[in-house]
């Protein structure tokens, strides 16, 4: 569905110093610096996949996504999306994809979302019957009914994001680019949006590329992740493999009536020691052994085994660097 080969994008930005004399000098002599936002990225994505695109701010995620959507002109390299070259901006291409940005809105601010839907209906040339059916379905899935007739400016961020999703999906795109769709939303709404995306993907086999700062989005939705840093792709593969290679540990939380005083360091690295609770970091291959031992020898209330938090894993990936999968 999506194939990217040796993609590069560089921007020319002018350098500006803070002193006002420099600002004046800047009027007639500008200094430019070339910034390579994306360096030699290659990957393919199959139909129906949900892929998470991770990386710190300014890593090149959004730039890559915008090139895939045909907004930015690549400096070099090849992109095909659904058989099209995005920057040629063929109407057929645009009809098969959609873009949702958490930071920018396509809804018309002063009037109800329904008006934006109608404008999109005309733009995408959707016939009345299909439009009504699709809208009905989206309204139900996203619980939009009470929002349709309220001016957009009076909606909450979460409500607006749900409407954004509906506006982007009216023409039933085969490819959906989501750029931080849950940014700024409360936990409950984030959960709602995630559930919707997962459901929608299952139902229509929509190919989805998602960037996010929230690990929750990625762990809930994506089997496959791509990690990008300084414009380079440093990991492309399964999320579970990433966790295993980068964090060959599990978290063991043991609850006791009274914490026995034994040298816990022998069992694993002690992360926290509280009243009635010990948290250990134990190598994966020793988890079974350690937990069996603990259960056998001590009086235990409860014992849980968890994967380390994604944040920790990703941070490690950036620090240590990774090549391939």
């Amino acid at each position: 569905m999506i194939a990217v080969k040796h993609l590069h994008k560089s921007f020319r930005v002018h350098v500006r110093q803070a002193r006002w004399i420099d600002a004046v000098r800047h009027l007639w002599r500008r200094q430019y610096r070339t910034v390579e936002a994306v360096k030699d990225i290659s990957f393919t994505i199959e139909t129906g996949e949900i892929v998470g695109f991770l990386g710190p701010n300014g890593a090149g995620k959004t730039t890559t996504m915008k090139m895939l959507a045909g907004l930015l002109y690549p400096t070099s390299g090849e992109i095909t999306v659904g058989g099209f070259v995005p920057f040629e901006q063929k109407p057929e291409f645009k009809k098969m994809m959609s873009l949702v940005m958490g930071q920018k809105s396509q809804l018309i601010w002063d009037i109800p979302p329904m008006e934006t839907f109608l404008v999109n209906k005309a733009i995408y040339d959707i016939d009345d019957r299909t439009f009504r059916r699709t809208l009905e379905e989206l309204v139900e899935l996203l619980e939009l009914q009470p929002l349709l007739t309220k001016p957009t400016r009076s909606l909450s961020l979460g409500q607006r994001m749900r409407c954004e999703l509906a506006a982007a999906l009216l023409h039933r795109p085969a490819i959906l680019f989501l750029d931080e769709p849950t940014i700024g939303l409360d936990v409950h709404t984030q959960e709602k949006v995630r559930r919707f995306i997962a459901e929608y993907n299952r139902e229509y086999q929509t190919t989805i590329l998602l960037t996010s700062h929230y690990m929750g989005d990625v762990t809930a939705l994506c089997d496959r992740v791509m990690i990008i840093n300084h414009g380079m792709l440093i990991y492309d593969g399964e999320l579970s493999v990433l966790t295993e290679t980068l964090a060959p540990y599990k978290r063991l939380e043991i609850h006791f009536p009274i914490v026995p005083s034994v040298p816990w360091d022998d069992y694993g690295e002690v992360v926290a020691m509280e009243d009635g609770k010990v948290t250990l970091r134990v190598p994966r291959d020793k988890v079974a052994e350690v937990s069996a031992h603990v259960l056998q020898h001590f009086h235990v209330h409860d014992l849980t085994i968890q994967d380390p938090p994604m944040e920790e894993v990703i941070t490690r990936a950036f620090q240590e660097g990774l090549h391939g999968s």
């Binding site: 915008k66 959507a69 045909g70 907004l71 901006q89 109407p91 057929e92 645009k94 009809k95 994809m97 959609s98 873009l99 940005m101 920018k104 396509q106 733009i123 995408y124 040339d125």
Partner: peptide, 15 residues
């Protein structure tokens, strides 16, 4: 300036 051209460019009409 604000990058709102993004959405316009994704529409299947002449931008």
């Amino acid at each position: 300036r604000k990058g709102t051209l993004d959405y316009i460019l994704t529409k299947p009409v002449d931008s």
